[in-house]
Design a protein around this nucleic acid. Structure first.
Lengths: 267, 267
DNA sequence: GTATCTCCGG
DNA sequence: CCGGAGATAC
């Protein structure tokens, strides 16, 4: 792998068209080399390519669809799109994988948007919940076979640790923090030995939220959850040099319900 | 009638909630005594009363409905709501009549939003077109009986003169400028001897548009139409002292497709 | 609460 | 092209 510092960010933007200005502001301010976006909510033909081009992000892998979901990885350094997994087998655009070609040469960056899973944490009563667990199961079998230095980032829609939510006990029955989800995510982690960079740099039980409901009741009380993650292969994890959450985007006008994460690597 | 200068405005605002800021700006800038709004697109319970109250327009007659149509007359001088005609007999909120109580005492101000009439100018093929003509017919029979000094203003959705559209010949088959509409509006005019103040002050064939389609194709070419009108009883017309179109609102952010008209009266 | 869609209406 | 609506999703 080529030498040099490479910074990689992830952000569930909740409509990239509506927040193109905010993405631009983030890129200007934080200047990550690579940005992985989730919930772009647009087909590629309406992706605001010009905004990224003007900001210097000439390399883009956009996997979009109409209205919902959709992911995009944009980069200042050359990249090659290498995969678009459909772990749900339903045509939803929830993943794009790229390989870095310039600095960081050879690193695989997997950008994923795991399904939210509906409201009721029960496979029978709520098919979406089962689909979420199945999605993770397929990711797990996929991860077992990985043999290249990889970073997987995105909106996992699960807060795994007790301290990843504002009230562990209250959220045990709330989708995103149920024991079965945490357990299933743990199996995914173990399948490759993924290292949770968020907690490597901001150890539990420190506050480390990445998402707040839009409803003012929870937002005003800082009742957040850590749903967004950056996980690295064991080898790649040793190259991570810094990690932060850019929480100030919450104060911008009409913000996303998620905030960006950034990790720096010495690759 | 009491003595004094009274200015009265009309504006199809195309959602008063979305453009409450623009209405406020207009009121601050032009300070009409009375403003008649059409297409407020809200029920009265969601009408932005506070904005008008703060701007000094303490007297309001709001005839709204959910989602579509709706008219409101707001005023710095006291008024009394005197009528809500349903000339289409279908429950749509397209009219409110008030009587001025302070300066201009006794003047009746009728605020009306005549139906657009659909796309096809044919009673059979397009019931909306017939409804528009019927609406005018009922207004005509109503106007025959009027015996008080009256001003009728609003979005008539008809451009009566050849010079009221950017291309008379091309629009002869376009709803808003068809001969049958112009003829039917003429009958309404004659039923009371209404004086078209727009053309009293800006004589034909001067450019005198009040509406431009949102479609950029027409807007960019200044292909407008005069759909908004202020018509006075013969006696009231002699008291009109000035009239203008406030076309600059088109340059504001996210403007209405209509611009306001203002007439000053020495009442 | 925010944002998408499709449909209706202009 | 721009509003509102209701439905759907997070």
């Amino acid at each position: 792998m080529a030498m040099g510092m490479v910074s990689i960010a992830t952000w569930n933007i909740n409509s990239v068209r509506l927040r193109a200005d905010q993405v631009e502001r983030f890129l200007r301010q934080e200047a990550p080399d690579v940005l992985c976006l989730q919930e772009i909510k647009t087909e590629e033909k309406h992706f605001p390519h010009a905004v990224f081009e003007a900001a210097g992000y000439a390399h883009r892998a956009v996997h979009g669809q109409k209205g919902y979901h959709g992911v995009a990885t944009v980069s200042r350094i050359p990249l090659r799109e290498v995969s678009r997994h459909d772990w749900q087998d339903n045509g939803e655009a929830r993943h794009v994988g790229v390989e870095l070609l310039g600095p960081g040469q050879g690193l695989i960056v997997e950008n994923v948007y795991i399904p939210a899973g509906g409201d009721i944490p029960d496979r029978e009563a709520n098919p979406k919940f089962g689909q979420k667990l199945d999605f993770l199961g397929r990711m797990t079998r996929w991860a077992e076979a990985l043999d290249r230095p990889t970073l997987i980032v995105g909106d996992f829609n699960i807060a795994p640790l007790d301290c990843d939510v504002y009230d562990h006990k209250a959220l045990l029955k709330v989708v995103s923090h149920t024991p079965i989800e945490v357990e299933t995510l743990g199996q995914f982690r173990d399948a490759h030995g993924w290292v949770d960079l968020g907690r490597q740099f901001i150890p539990a039980p420190q506050r480390n939220y990445s998402w707040w409901s839009y409803r003012s009741y929870w937002r005003d009380k800082d009742q957040g959850r850590r749903l967004d993650h950056m996980w690295a292969s064991p080898d790649v994890a040793t190259q991570a040099r810094g990690h932060r959450i850019v929480e100030e985007t919450r104060k911008w006008d009409q913000p996303s319900d998620h905030v960006p994460l950034i990790t720096e690597f010495d690759l």
